[in-house]
Design a protein around this nucleic acid. Structure first.
Length: 422
RNA sequence: GGAGAGGUGGCUGAGUGGUCGAAAGCAGCGCUUUGCUAAAGCGCCGUAGGUGUAAAAGCCUACCGGGGGUUCGAAUCCCCCCCUCUCCGCCA
């Protein structure tokens, strides 16, 4: 959500920023709604003021007195007006709030212009893509893949996109998670194990609702949503709280399974481990002082990158253009790992600064120097998502004999130097 | 799941229909005096929205877990929901 004062006082500034995101928003309609709401608010407040004044008078009058009775009669009319006005006001408020929820976050000045993913800027590339195994093939074509990554039985037991990881595959998932959490801990992120169901208020605060309603699995009897990312419960940890300024920045990380319905995503990029309904991910999250948030974003991106480096996986960093920025982000970098078999880049982390967008919805603040509460900036990114790292690892490290070489840093976690499909 | 007890400002805790946005204490901030690891006295000390302003101040309204209702008037009465605690049931 945006600051109402911002678009009320500087609508042109907001208009220009929204144009960069290439989203069509009827700001004038919202401004008009805001205007009528404020007029109505003043009406109702003045009526309530009358009630309050009368109340003070009546408290001093004897209960049965003629004066009292006539006052009651008089105030009945006012009371009716207030009730009527409040209904209208509530309706206006709801409409305004709903309209404001459709306003996306404004992009930062450093975000490049652009409309489509093709316009994203390759910010950095690391590692030699051409030096990889000549045996590489798409991971789902590796002999024995189906035994270790059992999609068929997953589909039987649950549905498509819910694979079983068996034996060495399960072990490798666990090794990766363990490695990620250990490394993130060393980088200063406090590990958290959060709930993996959240309520509607939490999903709204981080921007999943109402924007991405159909993308989450729901438990309607209890009003819960299965988390699409640990970002949701983690960010909501401090919802409706004022954090001690001295505690900023707060660094946290969390592993959770992530659940995504991925409604509407079909095609070849859903093969194998590329896109699943349930997958494991470690999320990095920071609550920071607004003055430092872009430095903190760069640092967080660096933390995620260092995981890929240690795993010896070639990757590139994309700086997302205005048109490819998400609804809630001010600035976003995507980390994409090279998958030698598929010969394409796979997104494994998305590092974003939300500025006050989430913080306003979630009311996460700190007390500034002047004693006034101020919204924090929230920043998050994956560190990292497992399945695509796994895909790249299987493809890039495939040996002539059909085994997969385990990166050196992972050997202590995995317990062996090779993964075998035999 | 059943029965009962509760949810009040940063914390503790009064308040059961009318000047209650809410006593008191603690913590915090400022000033004064005595002193010099401290004490006493006085004052200030919630959040949000609107209005106002260069910015403030000021003014208005709302908020006593959340949402409805009764009433001229609700922290206080009624209904629903959420949460906490105790007991019972069930259970990894």
């Amino acid at each position: 959500m945006l600051d109402p004062k911002l678009f009320r006082e500087s609508p042109d500034l907001v208009r220009a920023a929204l144009a960069k995101k290439h989203l069509v928003v009827d700001l004038d309609a919202i401004l008009a709604l805001d205007e009528t709401w404020r007029i109505k608010l003043q009406q109702v407040e003045s009526l309530r003021g009358q009630q309050k004044a009368a109340n003070a008078e009546m408290a001093k009058l004897p209960k049965g007195s003629a004066e009292f009775v006539s006052k009651v009669h008089e105030m009945k009319a006012v009371s009716a007006q207030v009730k009527e006005g409040e209904v209208v006001l509530k309706e206006m408020e709801d409409r305004l709030k709903q309209a404001m929820m459709t306003l996306p976050n404004l992009p930062h000045a450093s975000v490049p212009e652009g409309r489509t993913p093709e316009d994203n800027v390759v910010f950095a590339t690391h590692g030699d893509v051409n030096a990889l195994s000549s045996h590489a093939k798409p991971h789902w074509e590796i002999a024995g893949f189906d035994k270790l990554f059992d999609f068929a039985r997953g589909a039987k037991v649950t549905g498509a996109g819910f694979p079983f990881y068996v034996g060495d595959a399960a072990r490798l998932v666990r090794a990766l998670l363990h490695f990620f959490l250990d490394e993130n801990g060393k980088a200063g992120y406090v590990e958290v194990n959060p709930p993996i169901f959240v309520n509607a208020a939490s999903a709204t605060a981080t921007g999943q609702l109402p924007d991405k309603e159909g993308q989450m699995y729901e438990a309607p009897v209890d009003g819960f949503y299965a988390v699409p990312t640990a970002e949701v419960p983690l960010t909501n940890f401090f919802r409706d709280e004022i954090i001690d300024e001295a505690l900023l920045p707060v660094y946290r990380c969390a592993y959770t399974p992530c659940f995504r319905r991925e409604a509407g995503n079909y095609g070849k990029d859903v093969r194998g481990l590329n896109r699943l309904h349930q997958f494991d991910k470690v999320e990095l999250l920071k609550w920071v002082h607004p003055a430092t948030s872009y430095d903190e974003l760069d640092k967080l991106r660096g933390d995620a990158e260092s995981l890929l480096r240690k795993l010896e996986l070639p990757y590139r960093v994309l700086l997302m253009c205005g048109g490819d920025l998400g609804f809630a982000q001010s600035k976003k970098y995507d980390l994409e790992v090279w998958s030698a078999g598929q010969k394409r880049w796979l997104e494994v982390s998305s590092c974003s600064n939300f500025e006050t967008f989430q913080a306003r919805r979630a009311q996460i603040r700190f007390r500034g120097k002047d004693g006034k509460p101020e919204l924090v900036h929230t920043i998050n990114g994956s560190g990292l998502a497992v399945p695509r790292v796994l895909a790249a690892l299987l493809e890039n490290n495939l040996q002539a004999d059909g085994r997969v070489k385990i990166p050196t840093v992972l050997v202590p976690y995995f317990g062996k130097e090779f993964l075998s499909f035999a």
